[in-house]
Simulated assay, not measured.
Amino acid sequence: MSLIVHKGYLPGSIGRVVDLHARFYSDLVDFGLPFETKVARELSEFCERYDDNCDGFWLLLQDGIVEGSIAIDGSKANQNGAHLRWFITSDKLRGTGAGTALLTAAMDFCQSHQYRCVYLCTFDGLGAARHLYEKFGFRLVHQQQGKQWGSEVSEQRFERNAS
């Protein structure tokens, strides 16, 4: 089993990242069509306007298959902070350190670009992910009930500020 963190788009990667999100969150919290189309639309838009000077997109490859992803959208970093998005690993790689490898690549990128604030939006109930976020210096700054992903959850915003 060879794991590689690849920077940048690969053919088929948009569909695979959407698939990973759709299946995981459908099983976990019953997110359905609205969530899957939102992920597909926003990830596609991000890839179309991707700018190496401010954005980062990493894929976790196992034997050439996309088994995870993470992105940094830096297009509004000066105003709102850099946005960490589409962080996921496949079921078979959870708990193996794969998520740590992806977060390390993304946070190293943010540090090299001197992003003073990095934020992410998630929801309550993702204990392993929250543990990783906190390990990397993210702190919960806001929480409210919401339906932006298709089902009502306790939405959360985490931030990491440069010291």
Rank of each mutant, 00 (worst) to 15 (best):
M1Y: 02
S2R: 11
S2F: 07
L3M: 02
I4Q: 04
H6K: 08
H6E: 11
H6P: 04
H6S: 09
Y9H: 13
L10Q: 09
G12H: 06
G12E: 08
I14Q: 12
G15Q: 08
G15W: 05
V17D: 00
V18S: 01
V18D: 00
H21G: 09
A22E: 07
A22Y: 03
R23C: 07
F24T: 03
F24S: 10
Y25I: 01
Y25N: 02
Y25Q: 03
S26A: 10
L28H: 04
D30T: 01
D30G: 14
F31T: 00
P34Y: 00
F35I: 01
V39S: 02
V39G: 02
A40V: 05
A40N: 10
E42Q: 04
L43F: 05
L43G: 05
E45N: 11
F46L: 03
E48S: 12
Y50M: 13
F57K: 08
F57N: 08
F57R: 08
L59S: 05
L59M: 02
L60V: 02
L60W: 07
L60Q: 02
L61R: 00
Q62S: 04
G64C: 03
G64M: 04
I65T: 12
I65R: 13
G68T: 03
S69W: 10
I70G: 00
D73M: 10
S75W: 02
K76W: 06
Q79P: 07
Q79N: 14
N80F: 15
N80V: 09
G81Y: 13
H83A: 15
H83M: 14
R85D: 14
F87S: 14
I88M: 15
D91I: 09
K92H: 14
K92T: 15
K92S: 15
L93F: 06
G95E: 13
G95R: 12
T96F: 09
G97S: 14
G99S: 15
G99H: 14
G99W: 13
T100I: 14
A101W: 12
L102P: 03
T104F: 13
A105T: 04
A106I: 15
A106R: 07
M107G: 06
C110K: 12
Q111D: 15
S112H: 13
C117G: 02
V118C: 04
V118M: 02
L120H: 03
C121E: 14
C121H: 15
F123D: 01
D124F: 12
G125E: 01
L126A: 09
L126H: 13
A128N: 06
A129W: 09
A129T: 12
L132P: 09
Y133V: 12
Y133Q: 11
F136P: 09
F138M: 11
L140F: 00
V141Y: 03
V141A: 06
Q143I: 10
G146K: 02
G146D: 05
K147W: 01
W149P: 05
G150P: 05
G150L: 06
E152Y: 01
V153F: 04
V153K: 02
E155N: 00
Q156K: 01
N161Y: 06
A162E: 08
